[in-house]
Write a protein that binds this DNA or RNA. Sequence first.
RNA 1: GGCGACGUGGCCGAGUGGUUAGGCAAGGGUCUGCAAAACCCUGGACCCGGGUUCGAUUCCCGGCGUCGCCUCCA
Length: 461
Amino acid sequence: MELYNTLDRAVTDFVPIHEGRVTVYVCGPTVQSSPHLGHGRSAVSFDVLRRYLEWSGYDVMFVRNVTDIDDKIIDRAKAAGTTTDEIARESFVAFSSAYRSLGNLEPTIEPRATDHVGEMIALVELLIDSGHAYKSDGDVYFAVRSFPSYGKLSRHNVDDLRSGERIEPDERKRDPLDFALWKAAKPGEPEWDSPWGKGRPGWHIECSAMSSKYLGQPFDIHTGGSDLIFPHHENEIAQSEAAHGIPMANYWLHNGMLNLSGEKMAKSTGHVVTLHEALERWDPIAVRLFYLRTHYRKPLEFSESALDDAAASLSRLRSFRRRADRFLEGDADAEAIERFREAMDRDLDTAGALAVVFDVVRAGNTVMDEGGDATGHVLAFDEMMDVLGLVGDLDGKGDVDVSQIAADFGVPGATIDDLVELRTTLRAEKDWARADALRDRLAAVGITIEDSADGSTWHRS
RNA sequence: GGCGACGUGGCCGAGUGGUUAGGCAAGGGUCUGCAAAACCCUGGACCCGGGUUCGAUUCCCGGCGUCGCCUCCA
């Protein structure tokens, strides 16, 4: 399998440190507000990575962190007159439920920053002792120029960065590029005891501490959004590698941004469509399909029509699977599986992989139209859909109230199946008017009926 | 200014030095009481200008355009 490694700026063969085993660290969210479609894209991209690795036979340790202490969380807690814990908890619940709706597997471990302050302090001490960090007025800073390969991930060099306009001079720093490992406590803010007095960890240090605790160093794959390459991941590398003298992670994968009206979706500007809004309006699996139609490293433009397109596309997949229930014993079509694997091996080309899925759908439909055995197609379909995680409720049967329709048609208490049966009878009697009226009534409550030579079936619209 | 990505048919979007991407939408047809679903057919795409090559959408150079990062960010 080949993966694009940001460190190399190239697609390279993936070779895990330990045969048969892969360690993955996903930069999870800072739980300060509601997740938006961009967060969902990142989560889905790397959930597919994980599913594919597992399908390929690897034992995957998948760690996704939760950063539950940071400046924004503090600001929001102050503004809302509540605690940072409360803000983080609410946001975490929102992220978890949205991620689950999108069909993402639970991480093997989901560590929280606030549970690992001790590990962070130990790491900061190590950095101070080795001369890579210094105390200043209750803060601790990482000395960027003490780490010669600083910039190797983002391909920045420290002198270019120095000329950047956005760096605010700060007399507590020896060099404007230095970044905080530890911040001295301020009144009314969360604080922890440390050798440098009360305070809290800086951003970046939690990922260095938690990744090495759970995955060791180096581990195989570190992932996140491309907007984290600099400074977040660059700083993680500096911390972890300066402290331990060995690489932090071998492969760095970054997903492309989700755009809205041509610009990156970002919570800081309010330029967002929240996952909650999107999942209200579109089937969660359609949203997942929308993500996977585009290669994970490319920018992806949000639009309503793109989501509608994905939803229509999904209904094709579901229609196929719905009619294929009879063909579940046997072997998957090996050629299709092989083509699928070739696509996925190419740096997770899910768009190419989906083309294989649709090819199988067409072939399978043709076979079924001709009354043949579609087992190979159906099993290949199921296997590929499972790897992509497009496995939500196929037809969402249930929770539709048809009691009024049943009463109106003179069969009080009838179920949807009963009503479909009734319509079959009406059709046999060539009572087209009532049969069509029943179909229309059911359509009005979201039930689509399909007639075939084998009888009628229904599904949620 | 520095670093980087991208520009494919009506729309979305893979891939490739010469051979079918795929989806959605559209038109025509088959099937069907009608509908839905399905299947078949149709529309010969690769930003512009150079270069390399027998041949480039695919490689190289330049231009134009869009976007990301340059300490809030998935």
